[in-house]
Design a protein around this nucleic acid. Sequence first.
RNA 1: GGUGAGGUGGCCGAGCGGCUGAAGGCGCUCCCCUGCUAAGGGAGUAUAGGGUUUAUAGCCCUAUCGAGGGUUCGAAUCCCUCCCUCACCGCCA
Length: 431
Amino acid sequence: MLDAKHFREGLEQTAEQLARRGFSLDVAALQALETRRKDVQVRTETLQSERNARSKSIGQAKSRGDDIAPLLAEVGSLGEQLDAAKVELAEIQEQLQSIIAGVPNLPHEDVPQGADESENVEISRFGTPPIFSFAVKDHVDIGAGLNNGLDFEMATKLTGARFVVMNGVVARLHRALIQFMLDLHTEEHGYQETYVPLIVNQDSLFGTGQLPKFGKDLFHVEGETEDKLSLSLIPTSEVPLTNIARDEILDEEQLPMKLTAHTPCFRSEAGSHGRDTRGLIRQHQFDKVELVQLVKPEDSMAALEALTQHAETVLQRLELPYRKVLLCTGDMGFGATKTYDLEVWLPAQDTYREISSCSNMGDFQARRMQGRFRRKGAKKPELLHTLNGSGLAVGRTLVAILENYQEADGSVRIPAALQPYMNGVERISPR
RNA sequence: GGUGAGGUGGCCGAGCGGCUGAAGGCGCUCCCCUGCUAAGGGAGUAUAGGGUUUAUAGCCCUAUCGAGGGUUCGAAUCCCUCCCUCACCGCCA
């Protein structure tokens, strides 16, 4: 959520900046609403003030033993006027709020202008795509060949499309990846390991920006209290991790707060685009190791570089070829002010595919969730800056390993960094 | 799931329907006094929104005593619903 100032003063500039990312702000409607808001709010508060004063004098008269009947008569229609004004104000503010809550973050000045992913800017590459002397298989076939290591049919029976059952050594490899990532981030990058709920409430989802606009991407849980406190499965652990700061005022010394968690993630819309219908790339349920940082505003841009590097380190240690891309304005997420994507090489697709997305959200989420901190000696708390990134998406990492390390006989080599997590095994093979 | 108690400012803790944004204490900040790291005295110490303004300074107004409704001229105080916490019992990984 943007600072309300952006909608009061400098509305035109705000609209221009938003236009950079393809969002058109209805300036005229906002201006009209804002004018009414000011008018009605002043009127409401004046009436309120008036009534407070009258009520007070009634109280005083009563305690003196005076007759309060004339004073009561004087109050007359004040109450009704006030009620009407309050209703009107509430309506206006609701309208304003619903517009403002749906406005995305302003892109950082570093972010290149562009309409869609074709205009993202490649920053760097690591490693070189392997050359194979045989016809490469995709991860679905490789996984199936590893003693039915990936079983999509079974998952379809159990649940439906876009889920998977992993068996044996492939399930083990999946688990090893998680352990490896968590150890790296906690032991070398200074993150605190965190275990969080996989079901969150609507306040949390509003805080990180999934609501009100993207509710259809979520799986909602039917709770015992169906109306007020509905709950949803997390689409990413960014939601619970970042909302740890919601309605808190942290001490300056607690910052930066760096958290990591492994969780499954659940996404409802993941299947409806007709893309990546085969394999693990786009599932309703997938595991992810998430990195979240809560920092002081002046530190957030440097923190984005560091956090992205932390995610890159995973790929480097696994010796997977990847490239780093700076997203253009048109391809960024709702709350992001600047985002790097890491794309890993997938031989079977002969292309780089997203495996991590690292974003600086600025104060956008912090304002929504009132996540703040207080500087030493300062009186006023300030909004935090929040960042998050995948470190990494586990399913896609598994895909990358199966495909990049495949051998002609259907076996798969295990990268050295991962071997300690695989009981020293150097390769996995069909039995 | 059952029974009982309770949710007030950074913390503890008062609060007859009006003079309580909220006593008192602790903590914290500043000042004074004091010959020894102690004690004492004084002042200050919530957040959000709005108006005015060159101003994140002042000043004025409004809101907030778990949340939301209601009664009333007026609610921290009365009524209803919900959420949460604690204790004991039951159940359970």
